[in-house]
Design a protein around this nucleic acid. Structure first.
Length: 556
DNA sequence: ATGGCATGGCTCC
DNA sequence: TGGAGCCCCTGCCA
């Protein structure tokens, strides 16, 4: 498939110093110099000094100012002749390195075809057929439940954004209340759990003593929405009453306390099988534990489900057949299991990835698709768990590979999309939006690889790795560094549409109007909460953002 | 204003 | 097999 251009996307402008050599010769120069770089590196400093002195001399003599070209040293590869880093709001890659987005050599991120179009190289659905009998049953019984035609995505031209910051460390997980539409739960790296009523904006509760370090996953207790389970790197699972904040520890993997990093167990992946009344949780050594929700006790022995000593970061029970379990972890695999006979090596399928798998989820309605996020900068989709699972149905190159200092990116399904084709994921790489380097949150049509929409705010300059779509409303929740955001369509701009059509929240891309200077900061310097429409909030700050309506890019 | 640092996976030996 | 050192666009704080 030929690369397609997103015409309407902002052009990436590479600013070159006026005093630098023409670009054509620059690349060649780099090639030529490669061998002699070693020596030149040492010379460059003194050379620069000399040239500067020359300029000063010229100035003293009262001659007309001249422009000179100083040797550049790349901070990435330490070689001379080019520079990597931000030029304004655009990041220039080191040409000596392979593309950071798709990991292929021969080009840099700026010219990567996957950056130009997320659908580049993606083979769209329909998937391949197999003659597997299970797939036949699937086609007969489940397929009719999945809408073959995607609903129209009605895209408002603006969104309201509510901002709150009550976490003192970065946000690690989010969960919407199963019944109360305005309640968002958040966990952080410090072990705190927050409850935010985003309809009332200022109303929040923070429980500081739920865990002593990272809250990795939270799930509401089935049949009792006043309690949540949380798995933490402190090695415990907690069950916390949201009204009182009283927390009960269901399991502690480190009863002997800290004996050094080689023995300290941390809990990552977690899910609840409500039919069986079991909490499934997995640790950083590859083991799965089952906890009975009635007795609040561990049942059975730990089961090795991933490579021994590797972290199991995700667990998900199939929404239709809860005994089917999907796990993923640092051994580069996502694995499908039957809970009824789980033991080391008994996985039904092993889905290979090239790098660490950050998340793996069954599709939310039929449970028949799988979506994974891997640190090789690819989303992978398997269209049918009953079909051929040898290789994914599609791979979508998407920037989400940064792993240090950030909560891992996870692509999340839209639980409201009847066609099970919409996913949301934050973007690591920034783009130059009218002079501001912003990290958007992407809505991707996983059946085609197309970028349906991107959400960003000129005041939010941080990366947003944690995202969750509301199970019922057109609301997106985002965790970005220590802040939480709620994005909603702006009411007055909501188009009138047929009732069975659903909308997604999207922020139009801003037209160029404002300087970089006014675009910085705000991730909330005060601890005040804010709720503002883009229009009103930004008007007071004087930036003139003109928000354009995003076109509906979904193929129908 | 600016440097230090927390921190995790990967590669190399 | 395990420890040292490297790394790419971080974000916060002293």
């Amino acid at each position: 498939m030929a690369p397609q251009t997103r015409n309407q996307f902002p052009k990436v402008v590479i600013e070159r110093d006026s005093d630098s050599e023409p670009s054509s010769s620059e690349e060649e120069e780099v090639e030529d110099q490669e061998e002699e770089d070693e020596e030149e590196e040492e010379v460059v400093e003194s050379e620069n000094r000399e040239r500067k002195e020359e300029v000063l001399d010229e100035k003293k003599k009262g001659k007309a100012p001249i422009t000179i070209s100083l040797k550049k040293v790349c901070k990435v590869c330490k070689k001379v002749g080019h520079e990597a880093g931000f030029k304004g709001a655009t990041y220039i890659d080191c040409p000596m390195k392979p593309c950071f987005l798709c990991k292929m050599p021969g080009h840099t991120t700026v010219t990567c075809p996957h950056r130009v179009a997320t659908e580049h190289g993606v083979i769209p659905a329909p998937r391949r057929n197999t003659s597997n009998p299970l797939e036949y049953v699937f086609e007969r019984q489940l397929r009719p439940g999945i809408l073959p035609i995607k609903p129209a995505f009605i895209i408002p031209d603006r969104v309201n954004c509510a901002v709150i910051r009550y976490h003192s460390r970065r946000v690690t997980c989010l969960e919407f209340h199963p019944k109360n539409n305005n309640i968002l739960l958040s966990g952080d790296k410090k072990g705190q759990v927050g409850i935010w009523d985003f309809a009332k904006v200022h109303e929040k509760i923070v429980y500081g003593n739920v865990h002593s370090c990272i809250v990795n996953n939270m799930r509401f207790k089935p049949m009792n929405d006043d309690s949540i389970y949380a798995a933490s790197s402190d090695g415990t699972i907690s069950c916390t009453d949201l009204e009182t904040g009283i927390s009960l520890s269901l399991m502690n993997l480190n009863p002997g306390g800290w004996q050094g990093p080689s023995s300290w167990r941390m809990l990552y992946g977690m899910d609840v099988n409500s039919e069986k009344g079991v909490v499934l949780v997995a640790d950083n050594f590859g083991f799965l534990y089952l906890v009975d929700t009635r007795s609040n006790n561990k049942t059975g022995e730990a089961i090795l489900i991933h490579k021994k000593g590797s972290k199991v970061v995700g667990l998900h029970c199939n929404p239709v057949q809860p005994e089917l379990v999907l796990s993923c972890g640092n051994d580069h695999f996502a694995r499908i299991w039957d809970m009824r006979r789980m033991e080391a090596g008994s996985s039904l399928y092993n889905l290979a990835h090239k790098r660490v798998v950050n998340s793996a989820y069954f599709s939310p309605l039929s449970g028949s698709k799988i979506l994974t996020t891997s640190q090789d900068n690819r989303l992978r989709i398997w269209d049918s768990i009953f079909g051929n699972l040898e290789s994914p149905s599609r791979e979508i190159v998407h920037s989400h590979d940064f792993n240090r200092h950030l909560t891992p990116f996870k692509a999340e399904w839209d639980p409201k999309d009847p066609s099970e084709s919409l996913a949301v994921i934050g973007r690591y790489i920034s783009e130059n939006f009218n002079g501001a380097a912003l990290h958007p949150i992407d809505f991707i049509d996983i059946s085609t690889g197309q970028l349906v929409a991107e959400v960003m705010d000129p005041n939010i300059t941080t990366i947003s790795p944690v995202n969750k779509l509301h199970p019922r409303d057109d609301v997106l929740a985002t965790g970005s560094s220590r802040s939480l955001f709620i994005w909603k369509p702006k009411e007055e701009s909501e188009p009138v549409e047929e009732k069975d059509e659903r909308k997604i929240i999207v922020c139009g891309r801003a037209e160029k109007k404002r300087s970089r200077k006014s675009g910085n900061r705000s991730d909330d310097d005060s601890d005040d909460d804010k709720f503002a429409s883009k229009g009103s909030k930004l008007k007071s700050k004087k930036p003139e953002w003109k928000l354009t309506r995003c076109s509906n890019k979904v193929n129908r």
